[in-house]
Design a protein around this nucleic acid. Structure first.
Lengths: 243, 243
DNA sequence: CGACCGTTTGAGTGCGGTCAAAAGAAGTGG
DNA sequence: CCACTTCTTTTGACCGCACTCAAACGGTCG
């Protein structure tokens, strides 16, 4: 068993002791390989499984009654997935792998044990959930109140910032494995209109596309027109515990 | 100091012991009265204050760069407010009282102490946060992928269900203190279009308005056309701890 | 090489926005 | 209690952003 990806990520924000790291490692010890395009979890099916993503891209989504899809969130290595199942017997979200991925699989009883044995982890997970909520708020505001171009721009910037946290050598380019339809389902647009907006961003000199590589050419201006804020930069959890 | 409203709400889901109840009571012991329309917390201002709502209605919102407003969430008695300040030095949301309200005020150090002394509360708060996330997902999908009429309908139904949890005697009517502009800012519409949708719902026989009283006339049909799901009904946190 | 999937482009439509104004409701001060 | 202001709701006319439908193009995999 290699190191815990969740621990690596948390450890940037708060110092974990050896026993806590060991506990988190346990959550990732049972690993599973996921093929690109396959479902990890299906909406409205009872499940006790929870996951920590170790490699690859995953996203969660809901299907509405008219058949349309809303993508809720993109997940990257270190993220916990399937948390909808924590409070509801049936999850209200599905999980699908965008690229070949590796997850650590665990269940509720194991999580309950670990939380009981390591009293700092519960509060820490609570904080993490609040940080996610703040980011979800930005997405809500973007979808509810900004133009199509801004929504696409904000999504691209958010993905770039997430990837930068994982790999500081990334500067302004990354491989974007999402189709334009998936981008549309993420920000509440149709694939056709996403295409027009991407081309517009391209013609404005804000981004550059070649293959599935995406290059942000003028990040400052893209941030401005997209009404984007990088919340991750200001995350502070140090006040929680000094142990 | 009367009973804790947060404890009353949590106690429906998981059994709290006397010492935990006392701890939660402490969070609400420092009470403050808020006038209708006044700001409890301002976006982008550093703050250490956190709140538990005891009486009244509060909502949180963000202002975008073009001046438009997105209302993020309606809060009811028993809810914790201002959690954006937990992980960020500056909150990314503002809080405003819709009606005269009473909140319990506490700060991060007190919360940190209570979480450290009561090891079940951290995990419990974590679960609560996940439940909120699931509900936020529904709202995201509604705004991203449903029609104006469905969005308004889903908001009304959600408020009804929240109120029912607080007062089981409520059947199909409640006093709605939000203006149509505030409803619009909640679901990503203009006040003018909210008005048209409310009138349409009225003419369809789904709702009935008189003054600021709202009556749901055909709940089943409104649920259907709004693509609404009441997540609160299926909340399950019992697996967490048997202590 | 064909089948399939994703991207690109065009033409036309409609949902929700904008602008404007009137009517009603609710505070506010004298 | 009334006069006045301000806020909220309602209605109409028009506009435009994003959707729909459709077809062509390009890449990729078997």
């Amino acid at each position: 068993v290699t190191d815990s990806f969740l621990a690596k990520w948390l450890d940037q924000k708060i110092t974990l002791n050896a026993s806590e790291k060991a506990a988190l490692r346990k959550l990732e010890s049972n690993q599973r390989r996921i093929r690109r395009g396959s479902l990890l979890l299906r909406e409205n099916e009872p499940t006790g499984e929870l996951y920590i993503l170790r490699e690859g891209w995953v996203f969660s989504f809901m299907i509405l009654h008219d058949g349309s899809r809303q993508i809720l969130r993109q997940y990257f290595p270190g993220d916990m997935l399937g948390l909808g199942g924590l409070t509801f017997a049936e999850s209200n979200e599905s999980l699908i792998a965008v690229t070949d991925s590796v997850v650590g699989v665990f269940d509720k009883p194991l999580l309950a044990n670990i939380l009981a044995e390591h009293p700092r982890l519960g509060p820490l997970f609570f904080l993490l959930a609040q940080a996610e909520r703040a980011i979800a708020n930005d997405r809500l505001a973007a979808i509810g109140r900004t133009t199509a171009k801004a929504r696409v721009g904000a999504l691209l910037l958010n993905m770039l910032d997430r990837l930068r946290m994982l790999d500081p050598t990334i500067s302004n380019s990354f491989s974007l494995p999402l189709t334009q339809e998936e981008i549309g389902d993420s920000v509440g647009l149709t694939a056709v209109h996403v295409n027009r907006m991407m081309r517009a961003l391209d013609e404005d000199g804000l981004i550059k596309r070649s293959g599935n590589m995406l290059h942000i050419r003028d990040e400052a201006r893209l941030i401005r027109i997209s009404n984007y804020v990088n919340r991750l930069a200001a995350l502070d959890m140090g006040w929680l515990a000094k142990g």
